[in-house]
Amino acid sequence: MDYTAQTNALRAAADKLLSEGTVDCVIGLTPNEAVGFPTPIVIRNPEDAGKLVWDENCFTNIAVYLLRTTGRRAIAAKACDVRSIINLLAENQLKRDEIYIIGMQCPGMIKDGEPAPGCDQCPSSVPGISDLTIGSDGSDTYQDEKMEPHGENVTEWMENSTDAEKKERFLKEIDKCILCFTCRQACPACYCTACFIDRKADPWRQIDADRATKIAFHLTRAMHLAGRCTDCCACEKVCASGVNLRYLYRGIIEFVSDTYGFTTGVDPDARPVMNSFTSEDSETGFLGR
């Protein structure tokens, strides 16, 4: 693991891409002393390549900035960012030839001195697709590295828990929620221009004396993310209240996997699972069998 070498390789790549005009901008992370971890930056000049950084605190999912920029964009993306990008490609939200993926190997990130949410259970340290490879030693090959398991394994917990326990856990988590919708804004899959909760004619964002709105928001959002959530944990990483949404979304992911044999964020050419109904599906829906 050599973050200095990775940073240098990233800066060199950004410099080259911008100097040669391959891309209009590079989306990456830059050191931020005020918060103690790197935060997003979009650079447009080769001279600014030195602002980019890669270290153990680069947990922020920056795929969301691909939706907020235009033109040919390079992005310093780790495996979870790339899963989000693959989902966006599959959903026709990005054009592959406009995106240049600098694949950053990542054995898991640290947030507040602990493994960032989901990082210790990450399926792979290696981005699924990339145009340029920056391995963990700064070279152009990936090594095999993984983070040690840390704390409770949510996937196993979900498998070993009853529905009642899962419901109790979910309610306990959303009791902390203050409905600020940061999870939605930080989520690369939440790109609706008019979110169901903001609809003017039918405002959901209202009263929740009995936490009904919180339940409605989180469950509806989860339904909308079924087959689209890539388990990147961007939502947990940004939550001001420390809501562990993974206790909800891991269940959605397992369900999609068990029911349709589909894993989101693997194949950019795969038809989104919720967009590919077949009569062989175990849930036949309106066919009513």
Binding site: T39, I41, V42, C180, F181, Q185, A186, V238, A240
Partner: peptide
């Protein structure tokens, strides 16, 4: 405001 994603966390906290 380039990197602002409009989440409103700043105002809520």
């Amino acid at each position: 405001a380039m990197s602002c994603i409009g989440c409103g966390t700043c105002t809520y906290v």
